[in-house]
């Protein structure tokens, strides 16, 4: 019986000690950070109206301009991106809309003033990579030197895509 008592006490100690052994003073966890491609572009300033209502006698109607809107963009791409612009549908004959983007920072280069059309997107800014830039002014110029009075509302879509 004494042997049994010693045996059971030993089992008890081993059981308790096993708890201590299993109770490690450190532990690990794997934490993975994945950063995927992020390319974001936004137009600020809302919708605008360009009104052509003046002329110099003996010349065509004066252009109308607007610089109240801007583009913001972010890209974490290491390869070059560009911003394009495109009309949903073309203006009536004799009316055109051009836009230029004044780049305020980053790596992008403005393509200068470009006439917008619906048939294809035109490049407005090129060479953007690993940057975030805001308040890149959109300079719109509407021209209709000989057009008759009319209202034409169009939508311009700006896109940031691979160059």
């Amino acid at each position: 019986m004494k042997r049994l008592l010693v045996f059971l006490i030993a089992v008890g100690f081993i059981w308790r000690i096993s708890g201590i052994i299993m109770a490690a003073n450190n532990d690990n966890q794997q934490v993975t950070i994945m950063v995927v491609a992020v390319n974001e572009l936004a137009v600020t300033g809302g919708n605008i109206t360009l009104t052509i209502n003046t002329a110099t006698a003996g010349s065509g109607l004066n252009n109308a301009t607007d610089t109240t809107c801007a583009l913001d963009w972010t890209t974490n791409s290491s390869t070059n991106k560009k911003v394009t612009g495109q009309l949903d549908t073309d203006y009536s004959a004799g009316i055109s809309l051009a836009v230029s983007v004044t780049v305020t920072g980053g790596n992008g280069v403005s393509a200068g003033q470009q006439t917008l059309i619906s048939a294809s997107a035109v490049d407005l800014v090129t060479g953007m990579h690993n940057e975030f830039v805001s308040a890149n002014t959109l300079g719109y110029t509407a021209s209709a030197p000989t057009a008759s009075p009319a209202t034409n509302t169009k939508t311009v879509t700006y896109t940031i895509i691979d160059q």
């Binding site: 490690a24 450190n26 993975t32 994945m34 995927v36 992020v38 572009l41 972010t74 975030f132 830039v133």
Partner: peptide, 23 residues
């Protein structure tokens, strides 16, 4: 002293940004 981590391994994915700002 004893310590264990609960909840397993995790993955944090950065995939969004506000245009004009960092991700």
């Amino acid at each position: 002293a004893s310590l264990s981590v609960t909840g397993g391994d995790i993955v944090l994915t950065i995939s969004t940004a506000v245009a004009g700002g960092n991700p």
